[in-house]
Write a protein that binds this DNA or RNA. Sequence first.
DNA 1: ATTAAATTAGAACGACCGTTCAAATTTAAA
DNA 2: TTTAAATTTGAACGGTCGTTCTAATTTAAT
Lengths: 198, 198
Amino acid sequence: MNKRRYDSEKAKVEIMEHAVSLFSQKGYNQTSVGDISTASGYSKGHIYYHFENKEKLFVLLSQQTMQDWHNKWLQKEITYSTATEKLYGMAMHVLYHYQTPLLRSGQELASNPKSSPESVKQLYNLAIVPMGAYHAILQEGIDRGEFVHGNIDEWTVLLGTWLGGLCQLTNTQELKALEPLFNQAITIFLKEIKKGGI
Amino acid sequence: MNKRRYDSEKAKVEIMEHAVSLFSQKGYNQTSVGDISTASGYSKGHIYYHFENKEKLFVLLSQQTMQDWHNKWLQKEITYSTATEKLYGMAMHVLYHYQTPLLRSGQELASNPKSSPESVKQLYNLAIVPMGAYHAILQEGIDRGEFVHGNIDEWTVLLGTWLGGLCQLTNTQELKALEPLFNQAITIFLKEIKKGGI
DNA sequence: ATTAAATTAGAACGACCGTTCAAATTTAAA
DNA sequence: TTTAAATTTGAACGGTCGTTCTAATTTAAT
């Protein structure tokens, strides 16, 4: 056994990893700082050395997770050539990479009157990220002549809520089994917006 | 001031009303029995005279709320003559009467490992009620020749998740403003299932 | 080698929460 | 009127949790 050396950054990363996992599994309120301490192997005091409080830690984790999701999408996006393909690709990206349980924990925090308004605001702002991605695809489809001209903002919300609703199924069903459902949603949605009829 | 008389049933009802309101506003974990006691004006001890514990109280409230929603729908349903009309009517019924905040609190309870498995099961069973209502409309549409023959179970899930996703918007937006969105979702969905093309 | 800063641990605190319990009050039956 | 049951209260308990604080340990600079 080597002599232990402090590596504060490694500790911070490990704490964050375990915290994400616990918040996703148990929700915000039911995950205690003690839980994170036990899981990560670092003391409670040490967690407060790295993070101001539990709330700020959670917000940071949520933002990072959402950023991660978006970055992965931007990488995958360039492998598709049409907006139609991108919609199907996005459905799979949401199904497999959208961290539904973590984001739902955010609703727990946001619905608590004791939470700081700033944190609540930051969590609500997270919803803008996926909506922006959907909007970009739809805009591209219109520009490329794949999709008809229509109320793009309304389309964005409709698509976003549908994918968001479908994501709730990931609690109780296997991801693989949900693929046809996600694809079918895109197919139906495309009938509305795609140029050239059925 | 009349001499006060015990009216246990009235007390029970009042406690339940305030509990529903609080669970909806603040979520399950963030609503304490003390909160319900203060709001209803009955002591904590009295709440436990009527209900075994907080968890059972919440499950009862959820079941009653869902039952209520369904009964109201059954009454309204008979005012529509076609399955197509019923779909639009159902969208409005969901928008205005589905108690999204309360039901979301159920996810809080269900995601807590300390919750009794029986309660969790009962909460999950609640989702069957609206799905059953959607299924009935789709079945009727097919039987009446309004809708094409298709995978009715898949349709049910797709419709249910879409309406469920749209309901999340009720947190941040006025109900009235959401009407066009709900209607548009039905319109798009109908393009997929309605007989006779576009 | 000395020293100041960075890092980590763990005890302790104060607050809150779900639940229990014994006692007080009211009701209804005898 | 007496008595037992139903109803209601409020104090109390045991537990948990977020946070703070002090002290110990390690690191890096002098």
